[in-house]
Each structure stands twice: as C-alpha cells, then as structure tokens.
Design a protein around this nucleic acid. Structure first.
Length: 269
DNA sequence: CGGGCTGTTGACTC
DNA sequence: AGAGTCAACAGCCC
C-alpha cells in the first residue's frame, strides 16, 4: 500500500531517471485506468519529454512538454525502469523511452493513469481537492484544519482532502506516537494533543521516506525499501508488546477499517 | 477450493 | 458535516 514515504521516494527516483527522457511509444494494457480513450491518451503523451516529477500525497505528478501524466497506484503496484529484454510479467502501461529503456507501470485494477493538459491541473478534480502534503505540515496548519470539526481523528487523517499522503498503514503508528485513540473526536483534542499529533505525523512518515519506503514495496529498480518490520512500532503487530509500556497490542474495528492500538497508551477517554 | 480479508477512491445514502 | 456502505474484482492466507 503505497503512502507518502513510498510515493515520495518513487517521485525522487523517477525524477532522476526520467527527466529529459521522451516517450517514444506507449502501450496501454488496461484502458480502464485512464481518464481518456486509449488512443487519445497515447496521442497526447507520445513524444512528450519529461520536465519534472513530484507528488501530491499518493498521486505522482509527471510534468512533460505535452502536459501532465498523473499516476495513483491505489492499493499497490510497481513502477519499474526496465528494458524490452527485462519486462516484468505484468504491467498495465508501458512507456518506451528515447534511450532504449522502458518505464513499466503496474497496479491493482483501481489505480489511475490520467492525462491533463498543461495549465489545466486545477480542472483535475481528484488531485485538485487534495489537502496539503502530510510531511511538511506544521502545528499551526493542523490546528487550523482541526478547529471547529467534530469527526474522528483517524478518519480525519486518512481523508485525502484534509491531508494528502496518510493511509491505513502509517496511520497506526502516527496515532500511537500521538498517544491518541483512533476514535477520539477532533473537538476533544487539547492544544497539546494537536501539537503531539503534528509531531507524530512527521515522526511516523519521515524515517520511512528517508529509507526509501517500506520493505514490502519496491523502488523503480526493483529493490525493496529500507523501512523494515522492526521500524514499525505497533501497526499490524497484534499480540506483540507495546514498545512504550509492554501492554499487548490490539486490533480493533474502527468503522470500515481496522486499527492497531495499545489500549494502555491510547485511551479513548 | 473457497471464503474472508485488505488497501484506495468516489458515489451514494442517511 | 460526517459516518457508513458499496462497487470497481487482485492476491494472500488458512
């Protein structure tokens, strides 16, 4: 599940590998992930030269001379820099580059590859309504966003229109670091809680971003990330000891998703 | 073999 | 506003 640390790392790798390269040919295996008919998508981007690669939350933003290529990997996928001789078994899109290499894009069916014309980014609703990127967020930003709201803190954090980049993998450790129960409501948070939450967002994402993302995701060269199971504090560690107090970590249902908490460190009231 | 679970997002409902 | 459910149908686990 690629979230901020993985997407941030992929964007950095793609920037190094793709800037100044041109797409000489594009193959679309799964047209349903596009926002345009296949032939038009290909027409718009063939011949485009990559100018820059960045990201907004979980969306990769590839800026080219002919417009934007926007990628969302959904629940998982691989972005691989390969050659025609080393193609992966599965890919949904393939971009041949002018140096003979290929950029292969694979994801589960609910990923997206969208084309947006230069200057029209604000008309792309799925990215236009994203909140600010999670990592650079400040205590002041967060306080402003939370004030006057009443929903649960977990649903707030993973709602991309509030903050972009946090998903249901990193949110467990973020809430643990903030000592907040996922179902705590925003109107019950003290100034100290908000301060700790802002710090926790940073502490929960930065180490993984620095290590190239989680071990279960691969970079564009096919190598796993350096953020290992040992680096994860409590997420997906049901039954293990809380690193803070030793209490057994619990898995609980929080609305539509599961959460991992230390029942001692993250009390609801 | 098959059912249950998971992750993302938008649409939709209450 | 916010919470819940569903649908888009892959892969893993038991």
């Amino acid at each position: 599940m690629p979230e901020y640390p993985e997407i941030h790392s992929r964007a950095r790798e793609m920037k190094l590998a793709l800037v100044t390269r041109s797409f000489t040919n594009i193959e679309v295996v799964q047209p349903r992930c596009l926002n345009l008919p296949k032939t038009r998508f290909i027409h718009e981007l063939v011949g485009a030269k990559v100018l820059d690669v960045g990201h907004k939350g979980k969306w990769l933003m590839v800026e080219t001379t002919k417009g934007w290529l926007l990628l969302n990997l959904g629940m998982g996928g691989e972005l691989l820099l390969v050659t025609r001789a080393t193609l992966p078994k599965k890919y949904r899109l393939l971009f041949d580059l002018d140096d003979g290499s290929c950029f292969a894009v694979n994801f589960w069916w609910f990923g997206y590859a969208h084309y947006v014309a230069t200057g029209e980014l604000d008309r792309h609703e799925m990215t236009a309504r994203l909140g600010p990127n999670a990592l650079p967020i400040t205590v002041e930003d967060l306080g402003r966003m939370i004030s006057g709201r009443r929903g649960g803190v977990k649903s707030f954090l993973i709602d991309q229109s509030n903050i972009a980049g946090i998903g249901n993998a990193y949110v467990h450790d973020i809430l643990f670091l903030a000592r907040l129960h996922p179902l705590r409501t925003l109107d019950t948070l003290s100034t100290e809680d908000v301060t700790r939450l802002a710090e926790a967002i940073h502490k929960g994402l930065q180490p993984s971003a620095d290590k190239g993302g989680a071990f279960y995701e691969v970079n564009i060269h096919g190598q796993g990330g350096g953020f290992t199971g040992d680096d994860i504090l409590i997420g997906y560690k049901e039954g293990k000891d809380c690193p803070n107090c030793g209490t057994k970590i619990e898995k609980i249902k929080t609305g539509g998703t599961s959460s991992f908490i230390c029942p001692q460190c993250q009390k609801l009231s």
